[in-house]
Nucleic acid binder design. Structure first.
Lengths: 341, 341
DNA sequence: CTGAAAGCGCTTACAG
DNA sequence: CTGAAAGCGCTTACAG
């Protein structure tokens, strides 16, 4: 293990004092050009690399941003994380990542929040879960936090969210214009903002379209593939005259597709289907699915950009919700209802 | 912004010296039980959270591990990263993540490596690329590095890799046993160890099976979906009597599937197909694809566990290659060759 | 424009 | 068993 070069080594090598080297490296104050040159040569020769830990300790800022996510399993969250990371990198920060541990759900988010706090990160971009919230609330008093994808609700912080009601509205209008009236909504059982907003968007647009909604057409289940499977089974098992189904999450969507195959329900001949998230499997399967597409990369990037703004002083800005627009991508899983539907 | 609690604050609050608090918190040395109790109460009351930066600076170790990956876009790498992260978390470390920036390929890996080095990370788990290698080599002299998924080759470091030749062998034998003789291999054009090993595994097993390989059946292209598309087009366009195709990467596999549809080639009726990575789309599409499945989570976890072993002193252990076994999952994209094939 | 001194928040020999 | 002192590698007032 080679010994590491410190500022003092560079100073000695260049024949100047430590502060001088520091000033040159940080471009602060004016320095004699000749000294600068000499020092830069020493830096080069010795391969000096500043110790960010020491710098952080002294400056009382680390240049590290934490991202607390709900889990990299879902492509959506992985891409969002990439957005956060790229923004951090572009703006001179480093991202530290905490995602759900194993399969234990979100109970680790708080552990991660504490851990990252102990590293004195400059701020956090978080996909909030109910359990992490109380801790974040206290943390908020010390460092800026930006919520992304969903929010725990009272908007006391910046939040970057999808324009959920809008996209859902698009989806509903698409089905209505095809002639559908008996449209079911399959959604996640947890009370997170995304689900609430999509649910509301559904109801509102149906109302605007003048189509009454039978509560039996509103089915909530687990966020998982299994949940989607069960929801679709229940729906079809009920014998109701459904002609179209909207599913609010990608995981559930997969379950719905499998269930439809299991039950011999043809898409879109028997039932039209609209899902969430434009992932590869959605494009590769036959029929390719009509989906509400989100821009996860942009959401992450924007959230992080906002966070850095807060970190760097513009925290005079009043916290608000930033809406990113999704769009409906029409493919082959939606068509006119069956004539007997 | 609330002011933050330091060790000194706890000491004053408990009426003891700073070192005493430090010792109690770190469980080092024996301390009077009464003092301990008093201090712990103060810690609790003040909500003290140690400053890891300061601790790191003093201890000359940060407890941070860096993971340099090839990009979270691919599910494989996202899951692998999750494995690394979980291992880090389980063993008391924090993971810092660097993945490819935007679409610029791997040229940022070196930037990330430098950045993380400046934070004095205790070690790195890296999915190496050719450009990052020279820098890693010098870094290796200071901190432990474990390679994962692929290696730049000379095995001067620990590496956790898939047993590429084995799984490829399984795939080939599966096709041979179905009666195929004219099997094509579509692989990535870059000279990375995964590709080289899979290529060799293909040739070796064909040889063992006593089946000569026409070099025209060996087609290399970009790692991308477009690359796969082109490769399949070239193959079919050549008019060669292929009855089965093996594709070495998931990205290319998607391109092959699309190309087959475009050209009206039926799978497995006209051509049998084996791909890589057991991702959702591979299971959801019809026919569900036969694939060589890797255990990315386990690979990441194991690599990180190994790294921590090195970090914590067992670096007496001679660096070696650790092989993880993949397995062939037979589904509906492989069948007997066409009688006229 | 440059250097000597202090200090960021910890831990760890060193005395007692 | 406990505390005073030094030091990890930096930056930043403070003199000159």
């Amino acid at each position: 293990m080679k010994t590491i070069v410190r500022l003092a080594d560079v100073a000695r090598h260049a024949g100047v004092s430590i502060p001088t080297v520091s000033r040159i490296l940080n471009g602060v104050q004016t320095v004699a050009p000749e000294l600068k040159e000499k020092v830069m040569k020493s830096v080069e020769e010795l391969g000096y690399q500043p110790n960010r830990m020491a710098k952080s300790l002294r400056e009382q800022r680390t240049g590290i941003l934490a991202h607390l996510t709900a889990g990299l399993n879902a492509n959506f969250h992985a891409t969002l994380a990439r957005g956060v990371q790229d923004a951090a990198f572009d703006l001179g920060y480093t991202m530290i990542l905490g995602s759900n541990h194993h399969m234990e759900g979100d109970k680790d988010q708080q552990t991660y929040a504490k851990l990252f706090d102990s590293y004195r990160v400059d701020g956090m971009v978080v996909v909030p879960s109910s359990t992490v919230d109380p801790y974040l609330e206290t943390l908020s008093s010390r460092i800026p936090i930006v919520e992304v994808d969903r929010t725990v609700g009272e908007y006391s912080r910046h939040a970057v969210l999808l324009n959920n009601t809008e996209v859902m509205g698009e989806a509903v209008r698409h089905l209505l214009s095809l002639g559908h009236r008996n449209i079911a909504l399959l959604y996640g059982i947890e009370l997170v903002s995304t689900e609430v907003e999509r649910y509301q968007g559904f109801l509102r647009t149906m109302k605007e379209g003048g189509v009454p909604v039978d509560p039996k057409f509103l089915i909530s289940e687990d966020f998982t593939e299994e949940g989607g499977h069960r929801a679709f089974q229940r729906l079809v098992g009920s014998g109701l005259p459904v002609t179209a189904v909207i599913v609010t999450t990608n995981e559930m969507l997969a379950g719905v597709v499998v269930a439809a195959r299991d039950l011999g329900v043809r898409i879109p001949d028997d039932i039209s289907l609209i899902g969430m998230d434009d992932e590869r499997w959605v494009r590769m399967m036959v029929p390719a699915l009509t989906v509400m597409a989100q821009p996860p990369y942009e959401m992450g990037y924007e959230a992080c950009r906002l966070l850095i703004q807060c970190v760097e002083g513009q925290n005079g800005v009043v916290p608000r919700v930033h809406r990113m627009s999704g769009k409906l991508i029409v493919r082959d899983s939606t068509g006119p209802p069956r004539f007997d539907g």
